[in-house]
Amino acid sequence: MQEITLKNISKTFVSEFKRQKKKAVDDLSLSIPTAEIFGIIGVNGAGKSTTIKMILGFIRPDKGQIFVAGRDPSDPDSRLKVGYLPENPYFYDNLSARELLTFSTRTSGLGKKESNERIDLLLEKLGLTDVQHHKLRTYSKGMTQRAGICFSLVHDPDIIILDEPMSGLDPFGRRMVIDLIEHLKAQGKTVLFCSHILNDVERICDRVGIMDKGQLKKVLTREQIHQGTNKSIDYTINNMEEIFLQTICGKK
């Protein structure tokens, strides 16, 4: 079953005053089946975040169709089983992590007992138990990122969309997130994952899509990435980086 389907999606932004047009996404088609970890990589402005925002219904595509769990993103229920971590998440300053997570579970329809169990579990896993009642404005960047990851996972979603989840995390935090994503895969969850850190994408994802100028230039399976390594003979080359640069710049 396809959890996320995008059919020939295009999106052009028009600037407010000069009315200049900028194509953010251009004829993008993509399907992500259940229990797959799909990574999107691309330079800044490649259209990764725009694609995610269209999947979540924040912005509408000019052309094409999107289905999330079989529903159109304009249907709020399409987000019932979706967890989302925005790039550089901003929170309400005066709330605590626990209050924020309670909001997430309640709006997703979890009962009080289940909600408390899930919140305790996630806070423990991400090392936020001791600061769960502190105001979010007192959190460091890494702690904020971890609170964002908790927010996206606490209601036990089937589809998880992570936009730069490693941003601001120390090596220990990154390791924690990688383990968490691998655990989600083992549970049969579908993960859409955007990152600039190519090593992480190569390591975690079942398939990787390379975006450039709004277009999905290439989709590679984990096997295809590793086959490339064998052919290149030189094992010291960072393989994902090579493929990425070849796709974007045509560099050999």
């Binding site: 709020p76 987000r79 925005p86 998440p89 901003y90 929170f91 996206s152």
Partner: peptide
């Protein structure tokens, strides 16, 4: 401040 992304990633309609 884009805190709206967190709220709207939940199953809220715009009217809600």
């Amino acid at each position: 401040r884009r805190t709206i992304y967190l709220v709207m990633s939940k199953p809220f309609s715009r009217a809600q």
